[in-house]
Design a protein around this nucleic acid. Sequence first.
DNA 1: CAACATCATGGAAACGTTTCCAGAAAAGGG
DNA 2: CCCTTTTCTGGAAACGTTTCCATGATGTTG
Lengths: 345, 345
Amino acid sequence: MVAATIKDVAAAAGVGIATVSRVFSGTGAVGAATRERVLAAARDLDYHPSAVGRSLKTRRTGGVGLAVPDVTDPFCADVVAGVLDCARTLGQHVLLDATLGDPAREAEIADRFAEQRVDGVIAVPSGIGDPWSGFVRTGVPLVYVGRVPSCRDGGGTVPAVLADDAAGIRSAVEYLVGLGHRRVGFLGAPAPGTPPDVREDAFRAALSALGVPVDDDLVARARPTRDSAYAAAAGLLQRRSDLTAVLASGHLPGEAAVLVARELDLRVPADLSIAMVDDIAWAELADPPLTAVNRPARDIGHRACELAARGTVRRGPSGPVLLPTELIVRGSCGPAPSRRDRARH
Amino acid sequence: MVAATIKDVAAAAGVGIATVSRVFSGTGAVGAATRERVLAAARDLDYHPSAVGRSLKTRRTGGVGLAVPDVTDPFCADVVAGVLDCARTLGQHVLLDATLGDPAREAEIADRFAEQRVDGVIAVPSGIGDPWSGFVRTGVPLVYVGRVPSCRDGGGTVPAVLADDAAGIRSAVEYLVGLGHRRVGFLGAPAPGTPPDVREDAFRAALSALGVPVDDDLVARARPTRDSAYAAAAGLLQRRSDLTAVLASGHLPGEAAVLVARELDLRVPADLSIAMVDDIAWAELADPPLTAVNRPARDIGHRACELAARGTVRRGPSGPVLLPTELIVRGSCGPAPSRRDRARH
DNA sequence: CAACATCATGGAAACGTTTCCAGAAAAGGG
DNA sequence: CCCTTTTCTGGAAACGTTTCCATGATGTTG
């Protein structure tokens, strides 16, 4: 009923516990015959060395903590998959938890990870506050993923693995403007949040770089929920019926744009071109298939885990790791309709 | 640099370690003044009680192990979210790993969980073999989710939390037949796999219960990958152009059916009705929106975690927990076209 | 005020490992 | 055959907690 310990195995094999330990931890030399006897005894007793005993002594748990806003989100899920993938090759296990974007939960999770003495921490910060920076003081490798908290810790820079969102947005904007669009809407992150939205900034910058006037009225903001995204999209598209294209800064606003366009009987892409950030499964399935900016979520997770688990050398002011995005062109964007075309419809 | 221990706190507060322990574990009585001094010292030292020290003594780690085939799969992701949710309320943490449907990996993960001394295990078994049953001998609560392994352990029945797949399939079949469909295709799980597919069985049973002849040629099987599903769907729809409806036993074959129908210029639902199991996000987004059988994945995870973490009383031969499915009717199914209608197109 | 119950506290023994150290056995060299 | 080197092995001390037990200090009751 109760798990066998190293003592049981030692007794059964007629050896000292030190020998059993050497057999299982691989360190030190053990005679071939002895090793066999130990292994046999262990098999008989169904012995699994206790990680908690070991961790206490070695002061390493072999686990990394991973906190994401929501495992149900396809981007997060891919990040998790990447981390799991890498952790496996490194022989680490993964403690997962979901912050739900709530700073309070985030802090709880950070505490839990600290108690559990994880060897590394990977966090997709919620943006407000930073319960994670405490780990750098205790020497636990910490890696931010996807974004960095607004208020950074004072001293050393925390490593981060990010998608090159600015470049991704730029590529989408250039593509749309190249198709002749001048009045492009943007569905972005909430304004009240403290951190200025990188994507919105990139959107504005890309437009003005191309000589297209930027209109504050063209950007709508929503919290990361279906309802909020839908409301924002509906608001934007109704308010500005002159829009010929919309760029959604995530899959939720992208989904909302598709639904609202359908609702308003706008043909895609004849009346309205739609592009979004995050190339998730349904983008290909929609009708027409959606043009999207792909973020290498899985690679991001993989990379972050390497950094967190290997406890990489504390690098100086070298910036965050930026992974390239890719514009996946599908059928949802077309040439900008002339005003006459739109009126006809 | 190195984390403070209970001794450090005791020294700083000028008390014995037992007292510090009592303050943090909440057991036993501590004078108000002493408690304050201890808490202050702990705050100064940024002390987090070590879970590994505690676990060694109490022989409980406060963690549950969760193994799913693929966190990227929406169903699995929802299960994970449910588990996380429940674990949080129970004060447990979650060790997550992905089996990728590979029995070897599955066994590795089971070993890892055993080493980590998790307090409970939740597994979506791959179906072949059963590396999990070892836990029942060691008294670790084990719960299967989504399905049960083909070869069950001999003695006690392992609790399981499942969607009532048979009922779900039945409801879909009844719905389709009610619309007049007689030749309904089925996209199911691989045949070579040992366990007879519950859903396929239910499909056959439902059809014959309604007096519709079941034709072996109407069922196609695929492994759970996009490619395999697509091949199966293409094969089925080309081979049997007389089909008026298809029921996909998962979102991958569902996706495949949609794509193949589009490829073959079949109008949905005029030429072909499509329904699938798993009501995932894009079902509503597709055009037309897809009729689907919803499995309460989140609830399943929640429920499983309750069972696993509470170490519920070892019940006798009471069967698995069956959670109800729900048929979500959308626009992808219509009345069966007459042969003439189909020819006209 | 004596006798006793209650409360707050610290010492010390576990829990299951790893690892240092020292001793024994085996192997090799003259 | 003895001495040195190498290889193998076991004892014991950590690692950071919890918890039993004993002790001293209070408070209560007759």
